[in-house]
Design a protein around this nucleic acid. Structure first.
Lengths: 178, 178
DNA sequence: TGATGCATGTAATCCGTTACATGATTCA
DNA sequence: TGAATCATGTAACGGATTACATGCATCA
């Protein structure tokens, strides 16, 4: 899955500038399972336009620099449909956090607690973001699917982490309680 | 998190060759949240040895080429402890599958079903792999933590996916049932 | 006989991130 | 005044994957 296909995917929801596409990737449902920076989005868009998979239209703006608004073409939709119909590659999950937890014998308890709390905060932020997308509009089947999947996974992760955190706190101050 | 630190982490469980390290990364608990190929492991190990973070010992073998067995040094343990004590960066999750599902309007039902089934198979394989690690030995706290976390997340993912799959099948053949 | 496992290594290549460059507006 | 948002783009750099090179043993 490259940035070109990603841009085509975002553009199926309507025309947008490179800047808006990045925002959508960061704040929309895509954020749960994809990343992309300006350094890859802008060149991808230029390429896509060169191949006729998207159209460009310059929009003048007072003050701000001109906005380039991209829209997907029928040819682009064809290319996207093709790309998306390939059996998907395996999910890739990289977690520094779990690496730390696996090697927790090399950690001091406060450092470990801080890591757990950061992870919890990250997961909850992700969870909230997905919820926000759900309220936005009564969504189509695709959005429903991704939101349900993400929600389920994050809820489970948050639950275990909270348990682990309690265990950790209990171990740290056993003198407390009743 | 780079491959160098990863190698140090694997070596805390005991000495190993580059080949064995890759196997451990693929089959052990690491596999749930990290990837690495020979092309990055071998150079990393050479580098590590040059810096005195690991020792090397050549082991002769009849038939097969010599094995280079690496072991972590105290200095290496210090470096690892330091690397692991930094507040972890955010988890990175990339999923072609969820991208497809989000754009399912561009998919034919059979293609979508195939994708769901592949994902289900991948998740179940991952789940089984973690279970296998648990049985291996009564594990230390770190392994417990990662196994519990992985198990919880995967169980949740499998549950939603099975639901989604049923929905999909119901939609595909509504004429069936009672 | 052909695939798979053991075993190590290098080079080309890809894909993306980070940092830099530019600049107006708005909000605190 | 300084940060954040809007807005686009390029170049350097990094990190890892893929493919290639080599070679024996074992199992089907």
């Amino acid at each position: 899955m490259n940035v070109r296909t990603l841009c085509l995917g975002v553009l199926t929801a309507g025309e947008a500038s490179g800047y808006a596409i990045k925002k959508e990737i960061e704040e929309g449902l895509f954020s749960h399972f994809i990343d992309a920076s300006f350094g890859s989005i802008y060149p991808a868009l230029t390429q896509l336009a060169g191949e006729g998979l998207v159209t460009v239209r310059a929009e003048e703006q007072s003050g701000k620099p001109d906005k380039k608004v991209y829209a997907i073409t029928p040819k682009g939709q064809g290319t996207l449909a093709q790309a998306v119909s390939v059996l998907p590659g395996r999910d890739k999950y990289k977690s520094q956090f779990l690496f730390q937890m696996l090697l927790q014998e090399y950690l001091t308890p406060p450092v470990m607690l801080a890591a757990v709390e950061k992870q919890l905060a990250d997961l909850e932020a992700d969870h909230a973001r997905i919820r926000a997308c759900e309220c936005a509009e009564h969504p189509h089947a695709g959005a429903r699917f991704v939101a349900d999947y993400g929600q389920a996974v994050l809820t489970a992760a948050i639950a275990v982490l909270n348990e682990k955190k309690s265990e950790l706190l209990r171990a740290l101050r056993p003198q407390a309680a009743e």
